[in-house]
Write a protein that binds this DNA or RNA. Structure first.
Lengths: 186, 186
DNA sequence: CAGTTTTATGCAATTTATTGCATATTGAGT
DNA sequence: ACTCAATATGCAATAAATTGCATAAAACTG
């Protein structure tokens, strides 16, 4: 009961096919949830069986047919109920930080490199999110209600990303001193 | 291949029983990984079978016997190898942000409440982590190598927490305006 | 026209995580 | 003696997520 809610959230405004959903997860919702297409297709079947989504096959010109999913009334009320329930904190579960607990002279350079890689990925993301923010959420007070929620989520993602970039720089500075120690011995 | 590494990381310095590990996960490593005791016990069996951990039953006065696990040489080298491999970014997967995409007049108050609850939880955590930081990581430059890594992880956790608190305040301010709109339109 | 990429959907197997239950010792409270 | 809480370990069932493979239509590439 987790990916299902993320999927149904993505379907709140636009009806979509599994393929389109997989793409949407890579961008907008991707900050808060990641899912492979296999998982999405499986989940869509379950949700349709439960009566929360409706399937409709749509023929396309120049492309294979697609199956578009739309929220049913039952689906919408299930979502409304879910929002009013309590959610639990979910830990990061990021290997990178666990790896840092294993820091040694022998792996300091590698960890610095991994952090550099993460930094770049985050930069690219932030660029995208900042663009979305400027384009669609420039004046948050003027937004309709639901959009304000999306804005808040986006804001959390951007802030987290910026903090992460700053941390990367700090981490790399410290790792550089660890790594440097070694080179004057050999 | 994920919880196993977190467990073995926790065993780097101290040998521990499953019960003790479960507790350790709630505090120190808990920022980056959460696991139930069932999962930990299962994983410990697997790791022992693989030859990465060694079991030893220890009788205790006034308490039931415990089974203490220690890293083997094979375990240590498996860890060293793992650190040198590449890790992938892992998304947050937090319900709260997905819920925000569903913001409406009807649930704004509830979401503000949930955010308030999260804020309090984070405050308590930060209090604990700041205490650890002041006590054991006051002067990061003077730390031995491995400890510097732990410090960096801790720092990331603290920074993330602080950012989250600030975001909570901002979010609640915006949610308050959403909620207030309703009362004068009635 | 053969080969690759993009769009589009799916099954099967395995691994990982959660939920619920079961067991057993010891100490403290009533 | 009975109950409760903390310590300590585990099984079984289910749910969720990952990995690998399979299919197929159309467009673009050479």
């Amino acid at each position: 009961m987790a990916l299902s809610h993320a999927i149904m959230t993505a379907l709140l405004e636009d009806d979509m096919s599994g393929y389109e959903l997989a793409k949407a997860f890579d961008i907008s919702l991707g900050l808060f949830w990641r899912a492979s297409h296999q998982q999405i297709y499986q989940e869509l079947h379950k949700l349709a069986d439960r009566g929360w989504l409706q399937r409709e096959t749509v023929a396309q010109a120049g492309k294979p047919d697609k199956i578009v999913y739309a929220l049913t009334e039952a689906g919408r009320s299930a979502m409304a109920e879910w929002v009013m329930g309590n959610s639990r904190v979910q830990e990061g579960k990021d290997d990178l930080f666990v790896k840092l607990y294993n820091l040694a002279e022998s792996n300091a350079a590698h960890l610095a490199m991994e952090i550099g890689h993460r930094r770049e990925q985050m930069m690219q993301r932030l660029y995208l999110y900042e663009k979305i923010r400027r384009r669609h959420y420039a004046d948050p007070t003027a937004l309709p209600v639901r959009r304000k929620g999306v804005f808040l989520a986006l804001l959390a993602g951007i802030r987290q990303g910026e903090h992460f970039l700053a941390w990367c720089d700090e981490a790399q500075a410290i790792l550089a001193t660890v790594d440097g120690k070694e080179s004057d011995g050999g």
